[in-house]
Write a protein that binds this DNA or RNA. Structure first.
Lengths: 215, 215
DNA sequence: TCGTTTCCTGACCGTATGGTCAAGGTGAAG
DNA sequence: CTTCACCTTGACCATACGGTCAGGAAACGA
């Protein structure tokens, strides 16, 4: 913050900025390439081209392809965890689950690549993030199940199985990112418009909140 | 049908059987390998090993890796289409959608590999089955939307958006296959038992049928 | 038995990939 | 200006992969 807003695109100037900017560009390119080609199909050369750097430079910042991949997966996981705070500070399912659906649908629209990388990783048996599943994700899940169970006990929603509600929420919201291409094809080849996204969010919230007897 | 039930595992005997048996073994191995490693990560060598054949033999039956892959994707698509008949011969949403959920959940349990291959293919932009999406899948979708709309018009369910209902159905049912590893990890590392699968199906049906105001 | 079609497979090839390295460039501190 | 840590990169390497092929084995029909 030295007085004037830096564009910070290229010509980074300071040393630290060089590192930050290059890592950012690499991670952004990697996210896209890993999402579109999978880990096995992605090549360092393609990521390098997309980031506008020579391939050897990638290995200066990220030792191996796996290191780079791991960082990309961690990134989307953290974004999802942040969004999950919607759950906690809510008086009941209408606000809590409603906000959670909103947040996850927004992420599906703004970070479709990350969502696909995560899906791909889990589908292949989570070779690099198994520990996250067993620790952070498990803890988070148990916590949310407890919250939902409390809502049920308080009569704020029907006695559905909280675990399967979470799976339905994850599946449905992420579907709009992971299967975005299929959805686009069924939408005459055009991406969903702002209006269609609002309609999607409203539909999902409506079905889910009805489905759990919250409205 | 020459009198005795053939085991038909190995030692196929007749010419036609040799071809049939080898293609079956290759397709089965390919489905598993493509699901676990993705198209790019899968190797013909690994598929060959898993099928118990030398690699060169694979290329005798399937010219290229892509040919083999295409066959695997088509297979799961046909299985899903068959299951979709549940939709048609049903008087209302409770029977129709209920049966559809049952069918797709069963497939997620019996054909998890195929589901993953399909998901991976769509996530990567459907390079080899784009035409299916634009023809068969689109037609099928429009047909089912019409059926659902009729149920709505007949007052058999709430006026939800049929398209987003279909997406929710696809997402949720396939989630149990595509994210099966995550679900298993959250289930203390153990696969869902028969009882847990029944519970899952019941939960999904309950939430969905409530959600659309059919019960 | 013979001829023909189908099936089998070890050895091989061109290519593309992840990763390395050494030499050179560049910004900032003293 | 000098120094030094950090950054950049073309050239290179070993490996692994998809695919080919020629020669042989096995299954059938006559």
């Amino acid at each position: 913050m030295s007085g004037d807003a830096q564009i910070s695109r290229l010509k980074p100037g300071r040393r630290t900025d060089i590192r930050r900017e290059n890592e950012r560009a690499i991670l952004e390119a990697a996210e896209k390439v890993f999402a579109e080609a999978g880990f096995g199909g992605a090549t360092m050369q393609l990521i390098a081209d997309m980031a506008g750097l020579p391939k050897a430079n990638l290995h200066y910042y990220f030792a191996t392809k796996e290191d780079l991949y791991r960082r990309v997966v961690q990134q989307i996981f953290e974004i999802w965890l942040d969004a999950a705070s919607s759950f906690d500070d809510a008086p009941g399912p209408v606000e809590g689950i409603g906000a959670y659906i909103d947040a996850k649908m927004d992420i599906s629209r703004t970070h479709p690549h990350g969502s696909k990388v995560w899906a791909s990783e889990v589908m292949h048996g989570a070779p690099v993030i198994q520990d996250y599943l067993e620790t952070t994700l498990r803890d988070w899940t148990e916590g949310r199940i407890a919250v939902i169970q409390r809502w049920i006990d308080d009569g704020k929603m029907a006695p559905i199985n909280p675990r399967h509600l979470l799976y339905l929420l994850w599946a449905t919201t992420q579907h709009y990112a992971d299967f975005g291409h299929q959805i686009q094809t069924l939408n005459d080849g055009k991406p969903l418009s702002d209006k269609q996204w609002r309609e999607a969010k409203a539909s999902v919230k409506d079905m889910v909140l009805r489905g759990i007897g919250a409205i």
